[in-house]
Amino acid sequence: MQSADVRFHLDPDLLASTAEGRHNFLNRIKTVCEAAGLHVTLVPNDERTRRAAAVEDGYDLFHMDPPTHDRALTVRRVYHYPFWAIEPYAERWRWRVAEAGFPGGAPGARRFAEYWRDRLFGAAQAVRAGYVYVPLQGRIRDHRSFQFCAPIDMVRSVLRHDPARNVIATLHPSEDYDAADLKALERLAWDEPRLSVETGEMHRHLLACDYVVTENSSAAFNGFFFHKPCVLFARIDFHHIAANVLTLGEAGAFARVLDMQPDYDGYIHWFWQIMSINAGRPEADAKIAEALRRGGWPV
């Protein structure tokens, strides 16, 4: 039998807001745990507490970081507040929603999607202005295990498979790029006049682009609010209605992307309201308890 101890591993700001009762979702998890007879302790998220978690009895909850043992879970925002996930893996492509099948839309899905589009992005009208939007993340020249290819090769693929449109690749404003990455992009843009490299401005490009190409940037998920199709070059949780290079191949994904007419509104509703935990809803506590039980916690 495990002890009834639960440790929430939190960075300083989250630690303070949870201790003061100001973080709605984490405090709701705390309430659910305590109602089940568990004893919750808030601890700093540092190397010492992470090491200790792997050998101590009880249960551990990490914010965004990978769980360190089979009684640990990770909690992470599902792209925007107040939607959250509690999962046994930090990698989004291993989450329950990623492995589930999208069953189609439900009544009220359009109203739900429109409400959140207007709340997050305003009521601006989307158009298709004839270019491809490629939001980049980090490590431009590295091919990581969850990716089909390195991001620089993804950009080359866009230029190769869509020879008519201009391509705008954007650097993430919060990412720290090394000089060699930036030089590689600069050289490619010099060789390919249809390619331009910018920084940020996701909203503007989602409103104007024909479609999105990315490894697994959340910009593609945000594009669903504007009914913009996307090509994915990496594993991610929101793959269901995308043209996925990992399953279709490069040529197949680009051949399909502009003909796709998925149920964007139904998907957003399913992904958020059904498969995630909406911390603003009265049923959030029940969904929190369900997620903790799936992770093996005695709740």
Rank of each mutant, 00 (worst) to 15 (best):
A123S: 13
L206I: 01
F233I: 00
I236E: 09
P193G: 07
H80N: 11
A90E: 10
G21M: 01
T74G: 13
P66L: 06
G130Q: 05
T170N: 06
R77M: 11
E290W: 06
N278Y: 05
P298E: 15
L248H: 03
C230A: 13
A284D: 06
I236H: 07
D162K: 01
Q137N: 11
D13I: 03
D13V: 02
L171C: 07
F233K: 07
A279N: 08
E201N: 13
C33S: 03
L246E: 05
L292K: 12
E175S: 03
W116N: 06
Q261Y: 04
P173Q: 08
A253T: 01
F102K: 10
E192N: 10
E91R: 12
G200D: 10
T170V: 08
Y264S: 02
R76Q: 08
I86E: 12
R160T: 13
D263A: 06
D142T: 12
G295A: 07
I236R: 04
Q261T: 11
P12F: 00
R256G: 08
Y211A: 08
L15F: 09
G108V: 03
R111L: 06
F121K: 10
E20Y: 02
A129M: 07
G58S: 08
D11T: 02
A35I: 01
A90L: 07
G21H: 00
A164F: 02
A19V: 02
R235S: 10
Q137Y: 00
W116A: 11
T170K: 04
L258N: 14
S3D: 09
F224G: 09
Y131R: 02
M202G: 05
F121P: 13
